[in-house]
Design a protein around this nucleic acid. Structure first.
Length: 251
DNA sequence: CTAATCACCTGAAGGC
DNA sequence: TGCCTTCAGGTGATTA
């Protein structure tokens, strides 16, 4: 915040979706926010909206001496600092838009929003019938819960990932609601989860990978009961759970 | 409407 | 060592 953009260099064209006919050079960075998995940089007349997808990294350098083969976009600031976007798999996106509602039109309510109280959560949960993990992963309903945090939240709540939403009791739903908030806040406090690529803006690793209870622990003993953690495929995504702590269809 | 599958990409890891 | 397959923090388009 308070930096001024001097120049933007695009190294991989598909990373940058410029919905405007101009580049925000000479613009101030007035604020930063987040909605779901989108990072929003507030400029003078527009916004840069960033989604890291699988392997995106935002790293701030005080010189541009660190370009590597995965550098996709670089913003040079008047101060001499560089905002670099690296992305091995090229899935990440940076949008340049003027519409302040650009992100909120795409996603549902942010999981950590104060407006998502329990009654609203429960209402959403009961508004459609689908597997609970599918529900949690649907960014158009509740935004910000990814594959790792969905598995972790369900484990803490002792809910099987394939449980249908209409079979979840109000008591279980309350636990899940609280655990989602707890997990997300803890992950943020620990600076994120570095499985392989995630880096903080300083270039460091996150810390939450050391606190995971089920994600990536296939075949290892459950920390709570000692049973072997199972891994299944759900909606094409690896899904980890403890068959003993999270029995099927029990609410 | 939902669910399943593929497409987008690269690199690491495992099997043989 | 080397080749081939599978898998990965996600989403969006297409198909069923």
């Amino acid at each position: 915040v308070n930096e001024v953009i001097d120049d933007i260099t695009i190294h991989w064209h598909k990373t940058f979706l410029n919905f405007e006919s101009w580049l925000p050079v000479n613009s101030h960075i007035n604020g930063l926010s987040r909605n779901g998995k989108y990072i929003i940089i507030e400029l003078d007349k527009s916004y840069l909206v960033i989604h890291l997808r699988m392997t995106g990294q935002i790293i701030i350098h005080n010189s541009n001496a660190f370009p590597d083969q995965h550098l996709r976009l670089s913003i040079k600031m008047k101060s001499g600092n560089y905002f670099n976007f690296y992305d091995a798999r090229k899935f990440g996106r940076i949008y340049h838009v003027c519409d302040p509602e650009f992100v909120s039109k795409k996603v549902g309510i942010d999981a950590l929003s104060d407006n998502l109280n329990f009654s609203r959560f429960y209402e959403l949960l009961k508004s459609r019938k689908k597997k609970i993990k599918t529900f949690l992963m649907d960014q158009s309903i509740i935004a910000g819960i990814g594959n790792i945090y969905a598995d972790e939240s369900l484990f803490l709540s002792k809910i099987h990932p394939e449980t249908l939403t209409d079979l979840i009791s109000e008591k279980k739903a309350k636990m899940l609601y609280e655990n989602i908030k707890t997990i997300l806040k803890a992950a943020i406090k620990n600076m994120g989860t570095t499985i392989s690529d995630y880096k903080t803006t300083g270039g460091g690793f996150g810390g939450f990978q050391n606190k995971l209870q089920v994600y990536g622990r296939k075949g290892l003993p459950c920390f709570s009961c000692g049973s072997e953690i199972q891994k299944i495929k759900l909606n094409g995504r690896g899904t980890h759970f403890c068959p003993s702590c999270q029995p099927e269809n029990r609410s």
